[in-house]
Amino acid sequence: MPRDGAPTRERILSVAERLVIENGFSATPVERVIAESGTSKGAFFHHFDSKVALARALVDRYVAADLGHLDRALATAQAEHDDPVERVIAFVRLFEEEADALMAEQSSCLYLAVLTERQLADVGTAEQIAAAVVGWRDAVAAMIREAYAALESAPTIDPAALADHLFVTFEGAFLLCRSTGDPTHMRRQLRVLRELVESLLRR
């Protein structure tokens, strides 16, 4: 009976993701991924025919997890609040409350590591990341528009731009945490964003 290679592939991807986030793609040799994942060169190239193929698979996996996190947060906020204003605030608060756990799991974001590598941008990974950014923007902006519709006087801030600001806060906080060595910046920056959203929507 053929052996299921899924656990091996997942182990390679998990190790590669950590190494690329910590060191960058160019500074992560395939040999190190193989060694730290406890696999063989043959097993690696059975699943990924090149280092670029590994990069594409890493981004695919990360994007899927990222959008899955978005969907879960949207569903939780929807289940907890009928009021569209409170739903938006609760949505941001969910990420604020999970920030410390997030930073305990990873020191930065794979998107940042990939987008700074010119060779990866040239092979289509940037398009994968752009699709994730648009996915966040569309879903969060739709929720913000519902909140605006519930107000007597809607704010003038573009819902899509406000939705992008959540994504920008995440990425900027990753850089702040990494540069200062203080992972609590993520939670603090998300708290600031949540307080700004509260002041905007609860006027």
Rank of each mutant, 00 (worst) to 15 (best):
R3T: 15
L54T: 04
R202F: 08
L175E: 14
L200V: 13
V114E: 05
D60I: 01
G38E: 05
D4L: 10
P183V: 05
G68A: 01
A147Y: 11
V114F: 14
C109L: 12
L190Q: 01
C177I: 11
L120K: 09
R202M: 12
I12P: 14
L193P: 06
M186K: 07
V15S: 03
A142P: 09
D164A: 09
A35F: 00
E97S: 13
P2F: 02
A121H: 12
V92L: 05
E117N: 07
A99C: 04
E152L: 13
T28E: 11
P29G: 03
T169E: 01
L166D: 01
E98V: 01
F25G: 05
T184A: 13
A90N: 05
M186G: 10
R9H: 07
A99K: 08
S14N: 14
E22Q: 11
Q106H: 14
V20N: 11
L201K: 07
F95A: 02
D60G: 13
P2L: 05
T28F: 15
D60M: 09
V52K: 14
I144F: 11
T116S: 15
A131V: 00
S40G: 05
A90T: 01
A132R: 00
E146Y: 07
E171P: 00
A150C: 04
V92S: 03
